[in-house]
Design a protein around this nucleic acid. Structure first.
Lengths: 199, 199
DNA sequence: ACCTGAACACCGTTCAAGT
DNA sequence: ACCTGAACACCGTTCAAGT
């Protein structure tokens, strides 16, 4: 078997993977195209054969992050079929865990680093697919009388916003020390969701 | 009257102001120390006489943003004394408006650009002061029976998280086009808050 | 104390060239 | 089609020097 054809089989995905690793180790501030190239074992200009610019690589990393988040949400939700309340609560917990375990990928997905997300069709597709998943759970909760009757998309943004906001404030260090001594983020999110839920 | 002593009276504040202006015109990605210096009319190394590094200038801009947000919230709240429900709703509207009118300052305040916020005492002070203001309004609402009885800090994080999350998703372009055709961000936030409020 | 200008390491992007 | 290496403009930071 030949060790390596010339240099790479699938540089594009190798670059995405290298990017995720740098993100995990050095954070958003440490992510540069040149480092990504080096970690993938190619010259600094090689990435331009696969991505027109840095934003494009960031879009690919974000898209990959959304794919993973979607898969985890899907798994959590389908493990509680016929129990919408558990779907909602476990989905929220999954969201919190994803943010905690992939902090910097989460930041890149949601913190305005990607500037023109509309320009990246696969990013738009998976993010709207994820939103639809949320809407479905909300509708199931409404049908079960667990959430109030209201347009499902409006309710979905309210609930998702709730969870997302608490997670974001936590990642920013904006949640007071005294509160964090008593409750972790999952507890706080559960409490907040409890305030939205009927009985 | 002498036109200029040598070059500047208050370069430190001039740099913060220049930073805010660049942020408004070119966004977070366009903010560089060298541009800030140029806009303030000094050499690229002059800022180092006032800020040890770029993070420090970003901290100062964020602190300034929090000061402004605090002042606007204060004004909104004290215009409805003895009416906690109006304080809550008008406070939330003020928050939304601040984010819409100072999008990139808001992003810098809350989007992880500032990496070690704990290292900047005046930033920590104004952000915790702002949180205390939120807690006070929440407590007033609880005393008036508008919000459920629960630890006020927990309730405050839930409500603030709700508002913050919806605003953040909106700035990220994550709120579906079809929903935005029917409701603007203030409407959505009002709806969501309504789901938290008793009657 | 406050500022300048040269210098260094690093970055994103382009381009001619090689296979 | 995929990759390299030189080149360019820009960036953050340091430092010796000037007032």
């Amino acid at each position: 078997m030949p060790s390596k054809k010339y240099h790479h089989g699938d540089l594009k995905n190798a670059l995405i993977k290298a990017g995720v690793e740098i993100l995990a180790k050095e954070g958003v501030g440490g992510l540069s195209l040149r480092k990504v190239a080096q970690r993938a074992g190619v010259s600094h200009s090689a990435p331009y054969a696969h991505f027109p610019d840095k934003q494009s690589l960031i879009a690919a990393i974000s898209t990959e992050g959304f794919n993973q988040l979607y898969a985890e949400l899907e798994a959590a939700i389908s493990s509680h079929s016929k129990n919408p309340k558990k779907q909602l609560i476990d989905g929220a917990k999954t969201y919190v865990r994803f943010a905690e375990e992939n902090t910097d990928t989460f930041k890149i997905m949601f913190s305005g680093v990607l500037e023109k997300e509309k320009d990246y069709p696969s990013f738009v597709e998976i993010s709207s697919k994820t939103f639809k998943l949320v809407v479905e759970v909300i509708q199931a909760c409404q049908n079960a009388g667990i959430l109030p009757t209201a347009p499902a998309d409006l309710m979905a943004v309210s609930v998702w916003g709730q969870v997302h906001g608490i997670v974001s404030l936590a990642l920013e260090g904006q949640i007071s020390h005294t509160l964090l001594e008593k409750k972790n983020i999952e507890n706080i999110v559960s409490f907040a969701l409890g305030e939205m839920i009927n009985s």
